[in-house]
Design a protein around this nucleic acid. Sequence first.
RNA 1: GGGCCGUUAACUCAGUUGGCAGAGUAUCUGCCUUUUAAGCAGAGAGUCGCUGGUUCGAGCCCAGCACGGCCCA
Length: 492
Amino acid sequence: MDNKTSKLLDLRKEKINELKTEGISLYPNDFKPDHRVHEVKNIIEKNADSLGENGRKFCLAGRMMAINKMGKSSFVRFQDDGEQMQVYIQKNKVGDDVYALFKKLDIGDFIGVEGPLFQTRTGEWTLLAESFKLLSKSVRPLPEKFHGIKDPEKRYRRRYLDLIMNENTRQIFKKRSAIVAAMRRFFDENGFMEVETPMMQTLPGGAEATPFKTWHNALGMELYLRIAPELYLKRLVVGGFEKVFEINRNFRNEGVSTRHNPEFTMVEFYQAYATYEDLMDLTEEMFSTIVTQIAGDSSVEYQGLTIDFSKGWKRISMIDSLSEIGGVDPAIVNDTQALLAYAEKENVQIAKKDRHGKVLTKLFDAFVEPKLIQPTFITGYPVEVSPLSRKSESDSELTDRFELFIAGREIANGFSEINDPEDQYNRFAMQVRQRDEGNDEAHIMDTEYVQALEYGMPPTAGQGIGIDRFVMLLTDAASIREVILFPHMKKA
RNA sequence: GGGCCGUUAACUCAGUUGGCAGAGUAUCUGCCUUUUAAGCAGAGAGUCGCUGGUUCGAGCCCAGCACGGCCCA
């Protein structure tokens, strides 16, 4: 459909050929605007005295978004960096030839104009064109000006049209950029160093997920797109970089949904001599700082919920949350058989091989997670679902780990790291057994990583935060696709 | 993987009981020198997602497929 020749396209191509025949340059590159539209608007707001038909002149450029032709004069609304402004073109001002050229142009074309500003009858500040130039010709017609482009499929596949037509889309991605910048600033101010670790790994580790496979021709070997940077970042801590962070893509070979894109952005960070409790404090500080910078307030509206990011978030253990929030009888949370019976009664799918900790986790996912609207740290994750987390001193079945939940979804995961190489080896071995039992997402044995730990890693805590989900919260986006410029789509 | 919904002009959308394919915007022609989704007069514009089937006749009914959206797993 996109490539079939429509009548509209044919007409445009005819007009383009006419312009070419007349010797008009369709794609010149010699025009330098001296202001952007938003700068002109600032001047209008602060310094309107200097403006007027005999006042300051401006040289501006942009894409024509609407044209009102009125015989010998015309109004053109053009757009530059998302800001719109109007220009008035009069035949007797720009000359017959230029006006004739203008009449052949289309909505969507880029133009350059120069002249003073004046106010129309309704008071709108408008540039009065003394010169007018085509800067770049569009061949395809833009979507209609009033309704814009709405079809989500078209918006994602041709995001550029979405960005041209929908100011809200522009704002989401400007905000995303500001959020990531604020996060970098926060880490920088707190003494963290940004690093980059391999996206292609020989062993995909650091998370429980199915990887994408790829192949290196020259080396003749399989590689995996990383599911997490974790094991490399901790090697850096072994190497003496004691506060590191990485903001980059992870790839997980799983379903696509409003909350999952196969490639997504995470920040992971590690701090030597810190515990998971220190990281909870740091996370509260970071989120409340960023949210205040971005939203101008410590709370935001998300899908009809008011989420308050100011510090002092609830911290509760998974076991306590099951009874206190999930409504599970506290008498049965330590009794695997009773939990299994409860799960069956409540239609929670439990696999035969699942042990106590896994059962707890599944019940938590079903009954507690959806209720965690305000930022909440859940602590005390079972050892068997936490192959990289340090065992708790008080209970060897639990780990010094937390997950952060906001608006009923997981946003972050952090823990005190295992730095005992023997413990880490045994945990990997436990994962390998799970894998043998059919859990394809269980962690694989990584002896090179264990070797790194054998050289000694300081006591360390680390954390990962899903950037896309965090951005969703701050942009009130219902789907992860609204915050990823080019979300994954099937081949059209 | 399952359920529901959608796919018609460049865009946004109508399309009745199965009976000639529609509107607004955009486009084209003419008029118009302060418009504001400008206005007036006229015109052109379609592989109704794809493939089959039912029928005298299918955008509409049936089956399969593709892509997308929402929900569930």
